[in-house]
Each structure stands twice: as structure tokens, then as C-alpha cells.
Amino acid sequence: MKKNFYFLLTKSIGTYINLMSYVFPSRAIQIAHGYFSQPRKGKINSTKLPKTLQEATLETIVENENIVQTYIWKGNETIILLIHGWESNSSRWKKLLPHLIQSGSTIIAIDGPGQGLSNGKEFTVPKYAEFIDIVAKKYNPQYMIGHSMGGKTGLYYQYKYKNPTIQKMVILGAPSDFVIILKNFTSLLSLNKKMIQALQHKYTQVLDKNLDEFASKEFVSNMETKGFLAHDIDDTIVLFTEGKKIAEAWKDVQFEETKGLGHKLHDEELYKKVSAFLFESDI
């Protein structure tokens, strides 16, 4: 029943946008962009924080129009920055955190734009990378861990900002090609050719790059940072082939193929391998 309702809802939205594209094209693009870039889940209430985040020290960083929420588990001078994915927040790290805290490191998690307790309505990779840069400039992390779109954003961040303090990156279930993400969205809504072309033009401007080049495999092609990349064969959210594209382009990466973990990739053995990679220990 829920699947049928979701199917009818998405097709109805797509039909409405298609009709609007002939009468009010600018408005149609605005509506489509809103559905594509505005998370509908992931916000949290500061008075009802998830238990995991209650155990952290909260720090809000304000820079220009940006309000970036961070959560800090204080430890030694080794700093690990955690970057969650789409329609999520920093509580998604609750199963990985014990492994990282055990190392004695300082852990800093960040809420992305329009998610958690951070401000904003739109979630785009460049905007998220701007949030990361604000936090990175203040704390100079040596390690970065990103999941899903957080992983893609982390790779884009390092590609664009070339932060010399980042020594290692852990990327979990990240997509590679933006054109595939956009194609999946336009197919879901059954948008017409006019709208597809309009959105392609819009995101070429938003991303300030040819859409074919806005891909994680391109971001890592000349990257010197050492990486650990994990992707599940059974991932139905971000297909395994996306992970393979990144692995094949990243010259200094340890690629872990998993099975049965899905997109979330929560697994004790995997997290032990992450710790071993970061802290160069045997598991």
C-alpha cells in the first residue's frame, strides 16, 4: 500500500511539474530543484537530542550566513571528522563511535546543511563542502570519514580545497556520478525532456562544472590522500558499480567489498577494519 501511494505521489508531482514547465518554466525549475535538494528528513530538536549526541559537547559555529552544528567527543590531539549523508544527521555514527573513541582520538561530527541542528534548506555538495571547510579550518582534522553523499562531499572537499592536514579518508557507500543521481530523480518523477534539459543547465551552474565531470571518480583521480573505501554488493540505494568506479580511479585506496550490509554498512568487523586502517593496527 505504501509503495503504491509513493508511486502515485511521485508521478503526480512529476505531472504537475511537467505542466508547469509550459506555463511557468522558472517556477517549474524552482519546484523540481526544491524536491531534489531539500532534505525532508534529518532535522532534530535541540531539546530532544538522540542519546548518542547527548554524550558529546555541542558547539555551534557561525560564519557569515552559515550556522554549522558540531558534536565533539574530546580525546587526544588526533582529530577525526565525521560527515553523514543525505536526510540524516550526526547520530548515524552511533555504532562506529565506540571504535573511534577507543582509539583515544578526538571525534568531531558535523550536521550537514538543512539537517540535524545546522541551518539552511538546500543540501548541495558544494554547500556541504563549505560547511566542512569551516570546521576543518578551526580544528585541522587528520582523518575524515564520510557516508553516502557525505562520502562524495568529502572527496569533493579534498579535491577542491586540497587540505594538507587530511592524511586519510574513509568513504562508505558513496555515489560517484552526479549524472546518475540526477537521472534517477528525473526518471522517478517522469519529467519531460524540457525539464530534464533545464535541470541539467541549472546544476551545471550550481556545481560550476560539467555534470559528467562532477563525479567522485574524477575527484580522486589525482588525489594523494590515502583512502579506505567500502561498498556493499547488495546496496540498492547506491549501486556497487559506483563504488568500483571510485576504487578504480583512486591510486592509493583499500577497497572493501561487503555483502548483506546494504547501504548503511553498519558492521562490527567492517568498523574494526576502519580502525585498523586509520591507526595502522592488526585486527
Rank of each mutant, 00 (worst) to 15 (best):
I110M: 06
I72G: 13
G260I: 06
L239V: 11
V68N: 15
V170G: 14
N64S: 12
F178C: 08
G150L: 02
Y22V: 12
I246P: 08
T225V: 15
A28R: 12
Q102K: 15
L229M: 09
I110Q: 03
S118D: 10
L172P: 05
H99A: 10
F7K: 15
L189C: 11
A249D: 09
M169V: 02
L188P: 00
G34W: 06
T241G: 00
Y161P: 12
G154H: 02
Y139Q: 05
T57W: 01
T124P: 02
D282Q: 04
E268Q: 04
S187R: 14
Q158R: 09
K251V: 02
L265W: 06
A276F: 05
Q167F: 05
I61Q: 07
I61C: 08
D267F: 05
D235S: 08
E130M: 11
N192R: 04
K194C: 09
L8Q: 12
I13E: 07
V179C: 14
K168F: 00
E87L: 01
D232F: 04
A109D: 04
I72K: 14
W93A: 01
N4I: 02
M144D: 00
H33A: 03
E218C: 07
I110V: 14
R92Q: 13
G112M: 11
G104F: 13
L261S: 14
T165M: 10
K194T: 13
I61E: 06
K244D: 06
N222W: 10
N76I: 03
V238R: 08
G243R: 15
I110Y: 01
Y203N: 10
S118K: 05
T52N: 11
L229G: 06
K2H: 06
I166V: 10
D252A: 13
A174G: 05
I233N: 06
L58V: 14
T10S: 12
I13A: 09
N184W: 09
N18E: 03
L182P: 04
K2F: 09
G150A: 01
I196D: 13
P141W: 05
F123K: 00
D208Y: 00
D133C: 07
R27F: 14
I83C: 13
Q69H: 13
T124W: 01
F219N: 13
A136R: 13
M169L: 04
E65S: 14
P113H: 10
I108K: 01
G146K: 09
G243I: 14
G42A: 08
F277D: 08
P39E: 11
R40L: 09
H147E: 10
N119K: 02
S187L: 08
I180E: 11
S275R: 15
K51M: 03
V125I: 15
I108H: 01
S176L: 02
K244V: 07
S37A: 15
I171M: 03
L188F: 00
E256P: 00
E269W: 08
Q167K: 15
S46G: 02
T78N: 12
A109G: 05
E268D: 11
S21G: 03
N119E: 03
F178Y: 13
T57G: 02
S91E: 07
F7Y: 15
Q254C: 12
N76D: 15
Y156H: 12
G116Q: 11
K41Y: 07
G85S: 10
T258A: 04
L81M: 15
F255M: 04
K138A: 07
E55A: 14
E257A: 13
